[in-house]
Design a protein around this nucleic acid. Sequence first.
DNA 1: TGTACATCAGTGAACGCGCGTTCACTGATGTAC
DNA 2: TGTACATCAGTGAACGCGCGTTCACTGATGTAC
Lengths: 207, 207
Amino acid sequence: MTQKQRRKPGETRDKLMRAALDLVGKGRHFASLGIREVTRQAGVVPTSFYRHFRNMDDLGLQLVDELGLVLRRMMRETRANASQAEKLMSESVATFVSHVQANRSFFLFMAQGMAGESRAVQDAIRSEMRFFSSELANDLRRLRLVDHLNDSDLNMVCDLVVRAVAFSLPDLLWVSPDDGYQTDLIREQTTRYLQLIFVGAANWKSQ
Amino acid sequence: MTQKQRRKPGETRDKLMRAALDLVGKGRHFASLGIREVTRQAGVVPTSFYRHFRNMDDLGLQLVDELGLVLRRMMRETRANASQAEKLMSESVATFVSHVQANRSFFLFMAQGMAGESRAVQDAIRSEMRFFSSELANDLRRLRLVDHLNDSDLNMVCDLVVRAVAFSLPDLLWVSPDDGYQTDLIREQTTRYLQLIFVGAANWKSQ
DNA sequence: TGTACATCAGTGAACGCGCGTTCACTGATGTAC
DNA sequence: TGTACATCAGTGAACGCGCGTTCACTGATGTAC
């Protein structure tokens, strides 16, 4: 029934996943990583890999699961920070940017996975984005900010919002992590995108 | 078995680039392709590769140049099709979608390159997108559709338009190439994004 | 309680294979004189 | 005009190396009795 973990639970497994992520963070593409390379980076013997993963694709899929956790945490924090309606957009974007900064390798992996080899990874990322969009729609409904929009149009607006934010990911990952000036520019630009979209939404005639 | 060796100039070069593109079209990621693999696909001997490219990165960069041509051709056609202002958006999106369908491997390569290993490839793609955005701004100015916007705001609107279209790329590449139904959905959705953005632009107050 | 056994993560050696790359060679084409 | 030569694209053999993967082994831990 309750099969307890024997060793330090998943220690090597975590080391391997972190090693792969570190290599991605150093500029490598996940699709080009090899088993020996990852185990070398993790400081374990190549054979250890097979105790935890069938192959690199398998490791990638498990990374996506962890990516999901990072994104959920980000969403929760975004909600908590949404103090007032007029600052909602700039604060949400700021939360996003700071999470990208704090988890750069993860978001690099996500950006790569969107057009990656593994269909499963693509699916997982797409479903995360859909989840974001639908949660955003719920929130906007609850705040009664979009009463003039029908469901279909509201979903469209939220999809576009999520896409606009997601598309700033390549920008953020492109600039140096400690280039505060460029980062601020991207933050401001993304906020303006959202403002433009909401001006559109406010003046949109459903039906 | 005496085959003539000297062929049309650049023939093998083209074969190699096409081979790499074909492998990408089959679902492989460019970053994971090897020299022997590409030459095998092209039907030439591995050593031939070095007559034309220093390494795979070099081949990738030259693919980006060709990608640029494909994109310029697309832009020209988009302009030619922009018959009336009210159909401008749906027709532009339709042109984009049909070009993606017709050059699937190219756009797969582009989508991969946006988050790829090679900084040079990333730069090239980003500069293509910037070029698109600025050309779009010129066109809108010329059509006098956005007289109430200052330059900075117009550029912002055009950036967002280009991003909204570009972000439909993963969607298009995700569905099966001959799934007309899903493709139509993506086309309609992308058009609606643009309409929403232009409603926003029309109601945007500069300064 | 202690003991025997099953389970499991980690190890080092070994394998065959495909990789990137170098080399000397071949033969077609362009060009100088 | 013909010819000699330089240039260039393509070839096959060969190299050393790192790869993915298998195997038998070790030792720690959980479980049954």
